[in-house]
Design a protein around this nucleic acid. Structure first.
Lengths: 163, 163
DNA sequence: CCTGAAATCCCGAACGC
DNA sequence: GCGTTCGGGATTTCAGG
């Protein structure tokens, strides 16, 4: 299994020593994660070395956990996106919920929830037949007592760069 | 408003000419979006120029829509994450649903849904009082007929790099 | 915490296969 | 489609304020 289980609170309180410049760096990297240090230095009005040190420090603090590419999965043939709400018996531990769902390759993210439902699963599949297979696997994986699937028609994400 | 509205189908059918090497490039960039072309070239067994051409082409095809940084928002003091299901009257157009929700700064993503509910909103807030304000704003923004909020206790994301 | 400079490495374009 | 070459630019490190 790739990825990592991380239950909040990762950090009970926020890291104190994050200033405005750090937020500026983060904003620039959210817009484009491959921005060069030189370009950021120019925009911020700082030297290249200073910007690099900010980014290094944000990684060490765990504020920046990584960098990744944004992909249009529909263009790769994975055109269907859905959220499946899962309900479990009260005896099921959270760690098992995450493990069983994460074992399904089509699962992109697992959110454990306070209340009802117990978990919200983000899945990406090729077509509706594929979706049904994935839901069936989720139902059988743990001792699921009920599911409800929300089929995504469209989506908007903040700061998704427009090509 | 930052970001972009994108309703599926972005592409009714998948781009045909994506081969195994392209998938390898995408996998490497998902793991680390700031990988250099040289490092990818070495891993794949191709020249640097060839890898760069692959990435350029994937961007032109719209498969790669951008790059971004992964942030632990809890460390920045935004420790609460939730999904809010919204219900609208049948007369509300989808575009207005997205617009009203996206105007709220705390909204990270909006998913329009086939069936019930009509939309699923991913929000990030500082604390529970903040969450209540955001939900109130969502209720008043459009002509919302009902909401249900799922409070996230923990999350797992595929390919989230562990530091 | 910053700047500036030097060595190293990478990018990007051009050319030929 | 691929590789090679090469000049300009970026990264990284380190001395010094």
């Amino acid at each position: 299994m790739s990825g990592s289980i991380c239950l909040r609170p990762k950090e009970a309180f926020s890291v104190p020593e994050i200033d405005e410049i750090d937020h500026h760096v983060l904003r620039l990297l959210r817009e484009d994660g491959r921005r060069t240090f030189s370009e950021m230095a120019e925009r911020i009005g700082l030297s290249v070395a200073a910007v690099k040190r900010r980014v290094d420090r944000l990684r060490e603090l765990g504020v920046i956990t990584g960098f990744s590419v944004q992909i249009d999965y529909a263009k790769l043939g994975w055109g269907i996106e859905a959220f499946t709400e899962l309900r479990y018996p009260g005896t099921t531990p959270v760690s098992e919920i995450i493990r069983t769902a994460a074992d399904v390759a089509e699962v992109q993210a697992v959110f454990t929830i306070a209340g009802d439902p117990d978990a919200l699963i983000h899945v990406r599949v090729r077509d509706l037949g594929h979706l049904q297979k994935v839901i069936d696997r989720l139902r059988r994986a743990g001792d699921v007592t009920g599911t409800k699937t929300l089929l995504v028609l469209g989506s908007w994400t903040r700061d998704a760069p427009v090509p």
